[in-house]
Simulated assay, not measured.
Amino acid sequence: MSDGKTNPPRPGARVRGSQTGRPVMALLDLLGRRWVLRILWELRGEPLNFRELQAACGGISPSVLNTRLAELRESLLVETRTDEGYALTKTGRELLKQLTPLTVWSEKWAKMLK
């Protein structure tokens, strides 16, 4: 990465946990990166500009936020809207919908652990 660009996980390429880059493993690698889920969560509503998104995430450095946004844009989950800032793409919104059952399951699991 000598050019300073990020390399988000890609299906078909070696990713964390998979030599072959199975699509689900590439997705889990991406979602497992620090701050990625939080960024996606904060963009679930209206678009946010960089400062608003940084404040919503609380504690994320500007350089990490820039890196994660670049990865999420390259992965087609986030788009830049010139006037409005950053927003989820249609694919990003679909991903959050797919995570809803996991959220429900985790709430049940948390109650079991109490």
Rank of each mutant, 00 (worst) to 15 (best):
N7Y: 12
S61K: 10
T80N: 14
T67S: 11
T20W: 02
V24R: 15
I60K: 04
T67M: 06
E84S: 15
L88E: 04
T103E: 15
M1Q: 11
G32R: 04
S18Y: 03
E107Y: 10
Q19F: 12
S2Y: 01
L76E: 15
V24P: 01
D3Q: 11
W109S: 12
E84G: 04
M1L: 06
E74F: 01
S63Y: 09
G21K: 02
G32K: 09
L76S: 12
L43I: 02
S63T: 15
N66S: 14
K97Y: 09
T20L: 12
M1W: 08
E71W: 01
R16A: 15
K97L: 14
L99M: 13
V104Y: 08
T103K: 12
P101T: 06
W109Q: 14
E74H: 08
A70C: 03
V15Y: 03
R10P: 00
D29R: 07
T67L: 07
M112G: 15
R38A: 07
L43K: 01
S75R: 11
T91K: 11
I39T: 09
K5R: 13
G4E: 03
I60T: 10
S75E: 10
L96T: 00
Q98R: 12
C57Q: 03
L27K: 04
L65C: 06
R51K: 14
W109T: 11
V36C: 00
K5Y: 02
C57S: 05
R44F: 03
V36G: 00
R22H: 11
L30Q: 10
E84M: 08
S63N: 10
Y86I: 02
A26V: 07
W105I: 05
L31A: 05
R14S: 11
L88D: 01
L69W: 01
G45P: 06
V24C: 09
C57A: 14
P101A: 00
M25A: 15
L77S: 04
S63L: 05
N66A: 11
Q98L: 12
T6C: 11
G58A: 13
V104S: 03
G92R: 02
V36K: 01
A56L: 01
V36N: 08
I39C: 00
T100K: 13
D83H: 14
G21I: 03
S75T: 11
A70D: 14
P9I: 08
E107M: 13
